[in-house]
Design a protein around this nucleic acid. Structure first.
Ligand SMILES: [Mn+2]
Ligand SMILES: [Mn+2]
Ligand SMILES: [Mn+2]
Ligand SMILES: [Mn+2]
Lengths: 136, 136
DNA sequence: CGGCTAAGTTAGCCGCGGCTAAGTTTGATT
DNA sequence: AATCAAACTTAGCCGCGGCTAACTTAGCCG
């Protein structure tokens, strides 16, 4: 069954942009009360046109709600996905730092790694953060 | 600053398919002396047409060499990329298992994670495999 | 040799996630 | 109220990595 391995990776990538966007939108709303597209432009280093297209897909998929020239809001589903993604991201990043990796590298690497971490692996990382390194 | 984070992830993804393919081609050649497209079809769970397109891109990029109806070979660059990718993949997979993750999950998760692991993080994982868990 | 099957090729299509260029809306400043 | 800059939208383009359908080649076996 090595076939399924790569299919899982492809499926991870299909939800990756959505996870990063809802997380960023939730952060902006938490920080400034509102999320405007220009913040996502800066956050992700892409153009306004790209943000627009992406937001349209997210709206189609029921994760965000917006209207022309209006701020971007999260649906309930979007909020749930954002908080799950945020929690997973934080655990991965903290784990890498606990491993001895610099904060800067942990921030960079965790941004990609987070999307490929299964429940089981996340649990193992969390356990280390809570209880220290495994014995043996 | 945070902008570049996502650009790194996007750049990781741009080389991901190439890394997985040259690794698979090198494995096939090591195991059976030859790599035929059909092996990649099975390995990755995609169609023959997709493998064909991908191999054309890899050839364009100087990683593989082939001709119609002939086996697929690696260039020197392809061989170097394959062995680097293989080493990194093995370290990530072994590290996850050492963390207590099952072999099956380690195989699945490492297939995506490997492409986002920087030199620094790889070094930290290797250190654990060689010298055990960090102190503290 | 002829046929059949597996392997490979080609054409044409799709959605995603990027981009540029050009135009529109908004809201603050004067 | 008019102006202007920033924010936003839209149209049109691209390459990647998927797919199906139809065809071709290679090679084995009767
Ligand atoms: Mn994230
Ligand atoms: Mn991410
Ligand atoms: Mn991989
Ligand atoms: Mn990835």
């Amino acid at each position: 069954m090595p076939t399924k391995v790569h299919q899982r990776t492809r499926s991870d990538h299909a939800s990756e942009v959505a996870e990063d966007y809802v997380e960023a939108i939730a952060d902006a709303i938490a920080d400034r009360g509102i999320c405007r597209a220009v913040e996502l432009v800066n956050q992700f280093g892409v153009t306004h046109a790209t943000v627009n297209n992406t937001i349209k897909r997210l709206q189609r998929d029921g994760l965000v709600k917006t209207a022309p020239y209006q701020p971007i809001e999260l649906t309930e589903r979007g909020k749930r996905l954002a908080s799950q993604s945020r929690r997973r991201h934080e655990i991965v990043q903290a784990f890498l730092q606990k491993l001895g990796v610099s904060a800067r590298t942990a921030a960079t690497d965790s941004e990609g790694i987070e999307h490929h971490v299964s429940k089981e692996t996340l649990g193992a990382m969390k356990r280390v953060l809570d209880n220290g390194w495994p014995t043996g």
